[in-house]
Design a protein around this nucleic acid. Structure first.
Lengths: 155, 155
DNA sequence: TTTGGATATGTTATAATGTATCAATTGTGC
DNA sequence: GCACAATTGATACATTATAACATATCCAAA
């Protein structure tokens, strides 16, 4: 993500926080920025380390968890259940738009590609879902596999 | 799961192990039986506790993890990423048949409903994959939400 | 029959992930 | 300034998972 896009994304993020009546503190900004400028998902502990490296300051891991769940609650970051790690997206992402996402997670390079999944796509994937009488609260699906680039390298 | 179905499932499980040139030891059987006769997913530590309660013997948690990953490798149990817990199924289940599954996990009662997802269903999403050039190795999807019964109770 | 190798389990230690609790701080409106 | 809510710090602890090495068990080949 280039500098300009990063700045605009952080500005948009600030707006999102304010709209929720919450603050976009320096720590929240730093954590979000680290996630935005890293191309692999990071764990809470990795984020705490990164924070110490990148800034001259530090955060407790406890705070990282709190910051992450806050950012998650306002749809600025997502947690990957299959990795116990977190990712963030640019302003134009469907995560911002709160749509359902399909995460394609590469087992080799760890990079995550995100696809928007429409309700009709979900219906196609799970034709018998309606029969189950289940009310889904899930906004994301995760697929593990091998990405394009790694396949090429391995071949 | 009734007694007869349990017995036949355990017999089938033994066959599966033997077909893989592996053993169906007493501990593996007990762990599988606990999972089969519990209607909610259990963690490795919970399984170790259950084991102690149900049998006069015990297993180390380390062994439980090893047993679980073995049972998983021969498709007898599945791990739920969103809960860090494990489930097992009857002989007629699609888990035995190694198909892709959709797990509907109830946030209230913890029960898990399983739906089979055919390869062709997954393939319907493939236009997206082709764009992404991603090779999936995933055999399961997980949805969190509220099940039929809990909805009725809550209403 | 014994010995070698693969499989399975025991044991201990430690890493990694996550939560509870209470105190301190910061900022904002009154 | 003061009261109040939001945020963060700090400590302790709970939960989940793996590493490393030792021991046991079983079967097959010498």
């Amino acid at each position: 993500m280039n500098k300009q896009r990063l700045t605009s994304t952080l500005n948009k993020a600030k707006q999102v926080c304010l709209e929720h009546g919450r603050k976009f503190t320096i720590q929240r900004k730093q954590i979000l920025q680290i996630l935005l400028t890293t191309d692999v998902p990071l764990s809470a502990y990795e984020l705490a380390s990164c924070y110490k490296l990148r800034t001259s300051s530090s955060v407790s891991v406890m705070s990282v968890y709190r910051i992450l769940s806050f950012l998650e609650s306002v749809n600025l970051v997502r947690r990957l259940n299959s990795a116990n790690k977190y990712i963030a997206y640019g302003t134009d992402s469907e995560v911002f738009k709160r749509e359902t996402s399909l995460f394609l997670i590469c087992r080799h390079c760890q990079k995550v590609e995100t696809l928007a999944v429409s309700q009709s796509d979900v219906a196609k994937l799970f034709p018998h879902f309606d029969d189950a009488g289940f009310t889904s609260q899930t906004k994301q699906f995760e697929m593990l596999g091998v990405c394009n680039e790694c396949q090429a390298k391995l071949a």
